[in-house]
Write a protein that binds this DNA or RNA. Structure first.
Length: 815
RNA sequence: GCCCGGGUGGCGGAAUAGGUAGACGCAAGGGACUUAAAAUCCCUCGGGACUUAAUCUCCCGUGCCGGUUCGACUCCGGCCCCGGGCACCA
């Protein structure tokens, strides 16, 4: 027993103990309550960063605490191993992405193990392993059979120099990040999942997910964006084409003064053929970026096509404009413009001197000024012929009824959510299991031919996917006609791998099926932990795939993640840590200097988990100091010559210590399990440690109480700093491993006190404090308050208007 | 631009259901111990006023402006700043 805390000895010993005793390896046990605790799997970038440390520490605290609650806890770990950075690193260093990835995994696994995270490493998986992605390919084939997969042309960022598709982050100021060439928008055919088939359900289930933060549910709700409106068909004057639009404001239909279509719209292409200025505009629009942020912020520009649409009710000729803010990827690629009652249409009309026709009047008949801004709320219809005088609500029905009767309109539920484009023109990804036959068209690979193995060891180039030149991979035969055919060279979006990995952890060794009955035992994940940046996309895709798995009868519930904790970012000097800013902190160096427990303690203590965390080296020092103090306290206690023995009755000092002991257990229990505010749990533990440090041990009863208190302290802290607690638990005389000890309980009877403090406010300001007996009634409290000197001073010569007593809190007097 | 968060001492944060603003920790200052330093321990610590003195008392204070309330960090309206997401970064 060393009188000084030495993390460098304690930590490897504790880790070796867990390892040899297989403490965290779990098996299905229907007789026990399961608890599946999962932190989002990392991308193997090469080095653990503080965001990982925070994420995995939080997960480990919850997992360990639940294990102490008696749950059968599964906590696995794996690697999101496909993705762009591996290709970029490969191009830079001339290494194969597989080699880079596997080396990174090996290094990062070692880093995670040093943190003392209680993972069941026997279930580890890497998504770039064919044993993993073959089931993803299998799932794709099932989805294909179900009609959830289709191909359509969509816009991508095209680098004309490198002849490759660029990710949004690779487009900088409209130019390719490597080539510096002006990026073009190009349409290419890609595979899509019909996630919109599940839009209603994805939305509806959100209201039944109390374990998710309100903000995440709100974000997903807005993302799916259900709206009810009308589809309207506009005929084009003297031409065979029609223009389809969707609007939620069909009440303003009579105020339509023009139509706006995307530069890629069929009619726009026709217009371009007839007029070289129009074509020049279309060509000009083919630069920029596909992102919504870009689109909604760029200068709104347009050009007249020379075509006119006919208003479906009045027959009025409405000019059709091509506008750069209308995009083919969104809806039908056309909108009806009502400048009087839509801000964007208004700005566009002002710029190009298009007519502005008011058709809605405010309900209170106040005049509006259409020279400065559009009027967007609902109101009463004017200038709308037979619809004049109707409210917007009534007009929505009346106008749409007429459109339906004329067969130029229909009611439509519209979603902002778009189908999920899963094709990527990249090498380092899971191959999409399709074969292109010149005779039969695209054909799915036979299930028996899975997996379609990605050839490893290729060196990617900046010219995009090298699979196209790899004949061994490319050349195959058509599963339908048997003739020569080529493989699909597009690979899966990496969101695909992360949409089902949590299910595969339950049975990673299953080679006959994607999932087996073990998945039914463990799923859904009880607690999921990850960065807030994944609030919408990853979590929505995973929910979608889970519902598909349910429909394939592979899982038997609707939602994959029962409770969700979204952790904030780790910042240094107010900014996100990044290599380019040079403000990174190396977890390894910290672990070496202070030990994993200190790093864990600080990352939990510095901020509540959902908020961003400001890194502080000095703060780490403070966490280390605390652990040293705790160690010393336990050491001094076990070295004491006083023999512990429980008294028949506790003294008043002892009663106070006992009160704090039980109060601390109660507080930490609530903070860990209910509130998940680890920072306040640690503060409470520190506070009680301070009390124990000042507690003088004079008698056997004191020694007994100290033993109880320190045991509780070690148990409460165990999920957060497991190594030191593992050691201190032995020091306190226990043989059973701490990791499997039951969570401490508290006694309400100890928490009842004879008296409590109340505050007296006069006109909202605190003027006195009272010690009030536990069973004092309201009248007694009032009398007590009026006896206070300072209270008398403030109410002298005044009349009391109100006298409020809030039990156990305060007395408020208004004069 | 749109959607979702956040803003409290010198700093990180606490205040759980509208009821004592600043728990816990860091930094700083002072002291003890030491030949010295480190480590450790003790004290002070939002700003200001008053007093011989005090752990008394008073005023101000939770991004800014306004409102509701006996009472607002907390609720409502408007604004400013910072962060996350916006469909090919993960």
């Amino acid at each position: 027993m060393n009188p000084h805390y030495q993390a460098e000895h304690i930590e490897p010993a504790a880790q070796a103990y867990w390892d040899t005793h297989k403490t965290f390896q779990v098996h299905e046990d229907p007789s026990r309550d399961k608890f599946y605790c999962l932190a989002m799997l990392p991308y193997p970038s090469g080095h653990l960063h503080m965001g990982h440390v925070r994420n995995y520490t939080i997960g480990d605290v919850i997992a360990r605490a639940m294990r102490m609650q008696g749950k059968n806890v599964l906590q696995p770990m794996g690697w999101d191993a496909f993705g762009l950075p591996a290709e970029n690193a490969a191009i830079k260093h001339g290494l194969a992405p597989s080699q880079w990835t596997y080396e990174n995994i090996a290094h990062m696994r070692g880093q995670l193990q040093k943190l003392g995270l209680g993972y069941d490493w026997s279930r580890e998986l890497a998504t770039c392993d064919p044993d993993y992605y073959r089931w993803e390919q299998w799932l794709f084939l099932q989805m294909y059979k179900k009609g959830l997969v289709y191909k359509k042309a969509t816009l991508v960022n095209w680098d004309p120099v490198d002849q490759t598709v660029l990710a949004n982050e690779q487009v900088i100021n409209g130019r390719g990040w490597r080539s510096d060439a002006l990026v073009e928008l190009r349409e290419i055919p890609q595979w899509f999942f019909k996630i919109t088939d599940y839009a209603e359900e994805l939305l509806a289930d959100l209201s039944q997910m109390p374990g998710w933060p309100e903000q995440v549910r709100t974000m997903q709700q807005h993302w799916v964006g259900r709206s009810v409106g009308a589809n309207v068909t506009f005929h084009v004057d003297n031409r065979p084409e029609t223009v389809e639009i969707f609007t939620t404001r069909v009440d303003t239909l009579m105020g339509t003064t023009y139509l706006a279509i995307a530069p890629q719209h069929a009619l726009a292409i026709q217009a371009g053929l007839q007029d070289k200025d129009v074509q020049a505009f279309i060509d000009d629009c083919a630069h920029g970026k596909t992102s919504e942020a870009e689109l909604t912020q760029m200068e709104k520009r347009g050009v007249f096509t020379g075509f006119y649409a006919l208003h479906p009710l009045t027959g009025a000729r409405l000019p059709i404009w091509i506008a750069n803010f209308v995009l083919m990827n969104y809806g039908s690629g056309a909108v009806m413009a009502v400048p009087a009652h839509d801000e964007r249409d208004f700005a566009f009309a002002k710029k190009y001197h298009l007519p502005i026709q008011q058709v809605i009047m405010p309900a209170n008949n106040e005049p509006i000024d259409l020279h400065t801004a559009a009027y967007t709320p609902y109101g009463t219809l004017i200038n709308s012929g037979e619809f004049d005088g109707l409210s917007s609500e009534a007009a929505l029905k009346a106008i749409s009824s007429q459109l339906i009767a004329l067969k130029v309109g229909s009611w439509q539920v519209h979603f902002r959510l778009r189908d999920w484009g899963i094709s990527r023109q990249r090498y380092w990804g899971a191959p999409i299991p399709m074969i292109n036959c010149t005779v039969c068209g695209p054909q799915p690979v036979n299930e028996t031919d899975l997996p379609v193995i990605l050839p490893e060891g290729l060196t990617p180039s900046e010219k995009g996917s090298v699979l196209k030149e790899h004949t061994e991979f490319l050349e195959t035969t058509c599963p339908l006609c048997g003739e020569k055919a080529t493989r699909e060279t597009d690979t899966f979006d990496t969101f695909m791998e992360s949409s089902w990995y949590f299910a595969r952890y339950t049975c990673p060794d299953q080679n006959e099926h994607m999932l087996d009955e073990r998945a039914l035992y463990w799923l859904p994940v009880d607690q999921y932990i990850g960065g807030i940046e994944h609030a919408v996309m990853h979590l929505l895709y995973a929910r979608f795939i889970y519902k598909v798995l349910r429909d394939l009868k592979l899982v038997n519930n609707d939602e994959p993640f029962t409770r969700l904790l979204t952790q904030g970012m780790v910042l240094k000097d107010g900014a996100k840590m990044s290599k380019s800013k040079g403000n990174t902190v190396d977890p390894n160096a910290l672990i070496e200097k202070y030990g994993a427990d200190t790093v864990r303690l600080f990352s939990l203590f510095a901020a509540p988990p959902e908020q961003s965390l400001e890194w502080s080296d000095a703060g780490v020092e403070g966490a280390y100091r605390y652990l040293k103090r705790l160690y010393k306290l336990v050491y001094a206690h076990v070295s004491s010559p006083i023999k512990a023995s429980r008294p028949p009755e506790w003294s008043s000092t002892q009663q106070t210590v006992r009160f704090h002991l039980h109060q601390t257990i109660k507080k930490v229990t609530e903070d860990l399990f209910t509130r998940q505010t680890f920072n306040t749990a640690i503060a409470a533990i520190m506070e009680f440690t301070n009390i124990l440090q000042k507690y003088e041990i004079n008698a056997p009863a004191d020694q007994a109480l100290m033993q109880q208190s320190l045991e509780a302290l070690v148990l409460l802290l165990a999920p957060m700093t497991p190594h030191i607690c593992h050691y201190l638990w032995q020091m306190l005389g226990h043989d059973t491993p701490l990791a499997l000890c039951p969570w401490p309980g508290f006694d309400y009877s100890v928490l009842n006190r004879a008296s409590y403090e109340m505050v007296v406010q006069i006109n909202g300001k605190v003027r006195a404090r009272l010690q009030v007996d536990e069973n004092a009634d309201e009248e007694a409290i009032k009398a007590l308050a009026l006896q206070e000197e300072n209270v008398k001073k403030y109410i002298e010569g005044q009349t009391i208007k109100k006298f409020i007593v809030v039990p156990k809190r305060l007395v408020s007097i208004v004069v």
